[in-house]
Amino acid sequence: MGFKLLSKLLVYLTASIMAIASPLAFSVDSSGEYPTVSEIPVGEVRLYQIADGVWSHIATQSFDGAVYPSNGLIVRDGDELLLIDTAWGAKNTAALLAEIEKQIGLPVTRAVSTHFHDDRVGGVDVLRAAGVATYASPSTRRLAEVEGNEIPTHSLEGLSSSGDAVRFGPVELFYPGAAHSTDNLIVYVPSASVLYGGCAIYELSRTSAGNVADADLAEWPTSIERIQQHYPEAQFVIPGHGLPGGLDLLKHTTNVVKAHTNRSVVE
């Protein structure tokens, strides 16, 4: 069995187990497998329904001669939608809004960016022009300005110390501490036991640490421990890039980060 097929099978099995364990909360999309990078042309966006009122959005972007996937989250909030992270750029984010209108038909009224990198804030200006209120932590807003990236308009308070959590509509926002970046936030959907790890969490097929220019490698494993301790009931975990899975993604990420750190020390 090929690795790609095995990865998709694991996603399907995880979703099936969740649907059985929580039949009222989960209505997993039966329309197909989780979209992969090879299936999404740059400039297009796919939506994948995880649970009743919960979707991931998947886009792709060219970077350094390669094409990478990027995940975000959409959560229903009454007759409105909360968006977590842009679709990595203005063109993708405009396509995301169009796809949401086509498939869901509810307005996106608020959006949260989970850290300051372009795959999370690139497209904020498109959201703002569409009347979406954009939010991020003060740290993310400051770092985005320093980096020359787009800056969300509103500040999220109460997320300055490791372990801080605040309720934001249908989700809980959690600051686990520094990891992929010093400002990275985690998003949890309690009604569906869905954990969105953003770039602080890796997919299972990833074996290298990737972009760690703004990471705190020493603190990252401790931050992941905080996530595990705060959300032990999480059933569906979405990484910032690639295929979702279960809580095993947290341990896998820790292993990859520690291996990278150990290699760096040896070198």
Score class of each variant (00 low, 15 high):
1 M>R: 05
2 G>A: 08
2 G>N: 15
3 F>K: 14
3 F>C: 05
3 F>W: 07
4 K>E: 13
6 L>R: 08
6 L>C: 11
7 S>A: 08
9 L>A: 07
9 L>W: 07
10 L>I: 07
10 L>V: 07
12 Y>M: 11
13 L>H: 10
15 A>R: 08
15 A>V: 07
17 I>T: 05
19 A>T: 12
19 A>F: 10
20 I>T: 06
22 S>M: 08
23 P>E: 07
23 P>R: 07
24 L>S: 07
26 F>V: 07
26 F>I: 09
27 S>F: 14
27 S>E: 07
29 D>S: 10
29 D>E: 12
29 D>A: 08
29 D>K: 10
32 G>M: 11
33 E>N: 11
33 E>A: 09
34 Y>K: 07
34 Y>Q: 06
34 Y>D: 10
34 Y>P: 12
34 Y>W: 08
35 P>D: 11
36 T>F: 06
36 T>Q: 07
37 V>K: 08
37 V>M: 11
38 S>I: 09
38 S>K: 10
40 I>K: 13
40 I>L: 14
41 P>R: 11
41 P>S: 10
42 V>N: 15
42 V>H: 07
42 V>C: 13
42 V>M: 14
46 R>I: 13
46 R>H: 07
47 L>A: 04
48 Y>F: 11
50 I>M: 08
51 A>G: 13
51 A>H: 06
52 D>C: 04
53 G>I: 11
53 G>Q: 11
54 V>P: 01
55 W>Q: 01
55 W>P: 01
56 S>Q: 05
56 S>P: 05
56 S>A: 11
57 H>G: 02
58 I>P: 03
59 A>S: 09
59 A>E: 14
60 T>I: 06
60 T>E: 08
60 T>Y: 05
60 T>A: 09
60 T>N: 09
61 Q>I: 13
61 Q>V: 11
61 Q>E: 08
61 Q>Y: 14
62 S>I: 15
64 D>E: 07
64 D>Y: 15
65 G>W: 07
65 G>Q: 11
65 G>C: 03
66 A>H: 07
67 V>T: 09
69 P>H: 15
69 P>E: 10
70 S>N: 09
72 G>L: 00
72 G>M: 01
72 G>N: 01
72 G>S: 02
72 G>K: 01
73 L>G: 09
73 L>E: 02
74 I>N: 02
78 G>H: 05
81 L>P: 02
81 L>M: 08
82 L>F: 08
82 L>K: 00
83 L>C: 03
84 I>A: 10
85 D>H: 03
85 D>I: 00
86 T>G: 03
86 T>A: 13
90 A>S: 13
91 K>V: 14
92 N>M: 07
93 T>K: 00
97 L>Y: 03
98 A>D: 06
99 E>I: 11
100 I>R: 01
101 E>P: 15
101 E>R: 13
101 E>N: 07
102 K>N: 13
102 K>C: 11
102 K>W: 14
104 I>Y: 00
104 I>T: 05
105 G>W: 06
106 L>I: 14
107 P>W: 05
111 A>M: 14
112 V>N: 03
114 T>Y: 01
114 T>D: 00
115 H>W: 00
115 H>E: 00
115 H>I: 00
116 F>Y: 15
117 H>P: 00
117 H>Y: 02
117 H>R: 01
119 D>P: 01
119 D>S: 00
119 D>R: 00
120 R>V: 03
120 R>T: 04
121 V>P: 03
122 G>I: 05
124 V>M: 14
125 D>C: 04
125 D>S: 10
125 D>E: 12
125 D>R: 12
126 V>W: 09
126 V>D: 05
127 L>Y: 04
129 A>G: 13
130 A>D: 08
130 A>T: 06
132 V>H: 00
133 A>V: 12
134 T>L: 03
136 A>N: 03
137 S>Q: 15
138 P>M: 08
138 P>N: 05
140 T>C: 03
140 T>D: 02
141 R>E: 02
141 R>W: 03
142 R>L: 13
143 L>Q: 11
143 L>W: 11
143 L>R: 13
145 E>D: 07
146 V>S: 13
146 V>G: 12
147 E>Q: 08
149 N>L: 13
149 N>R: 13
150 E>G: 11
150 E>F: 06
151 I>R: 08
151 I>K: 15
151 I>G: 05
152 P>M: 01
153 T>K: 10
153 T>S: 09
154 H>N: 05
154 H>G: 12
156 L>R: 02
156 L>G: 02
157 E>H: 15
157 E>C: 12
158 G>Y: 05
158 G>L: 11
158 G>Q: 14
158 G>S: 12
158 G>A: 10
159 L>V: 12
160 S>D: 09
161 S>M: 14
163 G>K: 12
163 G>C: 03
164 D>Q: 14
164 D>F: 06
166 V>S: 07
168 F>M: 15
169 G>C: 04
169 G>H: 04
169 G>N: 04
169 G>I: 04
171 V>R: 02
171 V>N: 01
172 E>D: 09
174 F>L: 12
175 Y>V: 03
176 P>A: 06
176 P>K: 01
177 G>T: 00
178 A>V: 09
178 A>H: 12
179 A>W: 04
182 T>H: 08
183 D>V: 01
183 D>H: 01
183 D>I: 01
184 N>Y: 02
185 L>G: 02
185 L>T: 04
185 L>I: 10
186 I>V: 08
187 V>T: 06
188 Y>M: 06
188 Y>T: 02
189 V>R: 00
191 S>Y: 11
192 A>P: 07
192 A>K: 10
192 A>T: 07
193 S>D: 12
193 S>L: 11
193 S>Y: 08
194 V>E: 00
195 L>Y: 01
196 Y>H: 05
196 Y>C: 02
197 G>T: 04
197 G>M: 01
197 G>P: 12
198 G>C: 04
199 C>V: 00
199 C>Y: 03
200 A>I: 12
200 A>H: 04
202 Y>V: 10
202 Y>H: 05
204 L>T: 12
204 L>Q: 06
204 L>Y: 11
205 S>R: 12
206 R>M: 06
206 R>V: 11
208 S>Q: 10
209 A>T: 10
210 G>Q: 11
211 N>D: 09
213 A>V: 12
213 A>F: 15
214 D>G: 10
214 D>H: 15
216 D>R: 12
217 L>T: 10
217 L>A: 15
218 A>Y: 10
219 E>F: 15
220 W>Y: 15
221 P>L: 13
222 T>I: 12
225 E>W: 07
225 E>C: 05
226 R>L: 11
227 I>Q: 04
229 Q>S: 11
230 H>D: 12
230 H>V: 13
230 H>I: 15
231 Y>K: 00
232 P>H: 05
233 E>A: 13
234 A>R: 02
235 Q>V: 06
236 F>T: 06
237 V>F: 05
237 V>A: 04
238 I>A: 01
238 I>V: 06
239 P>R: 00
240 G>F: 03
240 G>L: 03
240 G>W: 03
241 H>T: 00
241 H>L: 01
243 L>Y: 06
244 P>A: 07
245 G>C: 03
246 G>K: 11
247 L>Q: 07
248 D>P: 10
250 L>Q: 00
250 L>N: 01
252 H>R: 03
252 H>Q: 05
252 H>W: 05
253 T>A: 03
256 V>L: 15
256 V>K: 04
257 V>E: 02
258 K>H: 12
259 A>L: 07
259 A>Q: 14
259 A>T: 09
261 T>L: 15
262 N>C: 07
264 S>H: 05
265 V>M: 05
265 V>D: 11
266 V>K: 11
266 V>W: 09
267 E>R: 10
